[in-house]
């Protein structure tokens, strides 16, 4: 509740409120690590329990997964650039880079939905077996996070366009950048332990 405001440093850290929000969000991300790792654990334990549904080795295609991975990796990079521009005080560049980020994210989602539809078409559904339940829940939870992130970022961009960069808006922007990078971290593990291992074993 302190009204003291620092005069230097990135805007998002200048108020105590900003510092506390960012710290709180880091702690939330730590909780998210546990949330996703529980899903990973479920997936790992239920691995191979496909019953009559197709096996992952049959369905996973390296091409589409690599494209999705590069889309998300690039979006994480452009999101980083957006924050870099924010710290230089450039609202316009920030918005442009964020729009690119969100477009890449939407592209990722498009491929993921295509992939899901394809699998369901092949008979691998949420209901078909324990393995596929775990697969859809793990990747779907990540996809849901990306969807929410896109919606959240759009709301934020409206606020930044209206209000410019203040300690409050830049704090919000910084937090969503953390969220977006974090989703990339999660995807790296999904890419590795779901898709690559699924195709190897």
């Amino acid at each position: 509740m302190s009204a003291h405001e620092l005069k230097t440093g990135p805007l998002e850290y200048r108020t105590q409120e900003g510092q506390m929000s960012i710290m709180g969000f880091w702690i939330f991300l730590a909780a998210e690590i546990v949330l996703f790792s529980t899903l990973f654990a479920t997936y790992a334990v239920l691995f191979g329990r496909t019953v009559d549904a197709p096996t992952p080795g049959h369905l996973f295609e390296p091409g589409i997964v690599l494209v999705m991975t590069f889309l998300l990796l690039t979006s994480s990079f452009t999101c980083g650039i957006a924050v870099h521009q924010m710290r230089k005080g450039s609202v316009k560049a920030l918005i442009i880079w964020m729009v690119i980020t969100l477009a890449l994210g939407a592209g990722f989602l498009g491929f993921e939905i295509y992939e899901f539809v394809h699998y369901v078409h092949e008979g691998a559904t949420m209901q078909s077996s324990a393995f596929w339940s775990a697969f859809f829940t793990l990747t779907g939870t990540h996809g849901l996070h990306v969807t929410l992130g896109i919606g959240w970022a759009v709301l934020l961009l409206i606020q930044i366009a209206k209000r410019g960069l203040t300690p409050v808006t830049s704090r919000k922007m910084f937090i969503i950048s953390l969220y977006w990078h974090f989703l990339d971290v999660v995807w790296i593990f999904i890419f590795t332990s779901v898709y690559l291992i699924g195709m190897v074993v």
């Binding site: 510092q19 960012i22 710290m23 880091w26 690590i33 546990v34 790792s37 990973f40 654990a41 479920t42």
Partner: peptide
């Protein structure tokens, strides 16, 4: 950030716990 050691501390424990949960299960 003036957060001191907190973010990496919590993230570190998050990853440790992730390892416990996955490997332990």
């Amino acid at each position: 950030s003036r957060n001191g050691h907190v973010p990496w501390n919590m993230m570190f424990h998050g990853f440790v716990l992730a390892a416990i949960i996955v490997a332990g299960s």
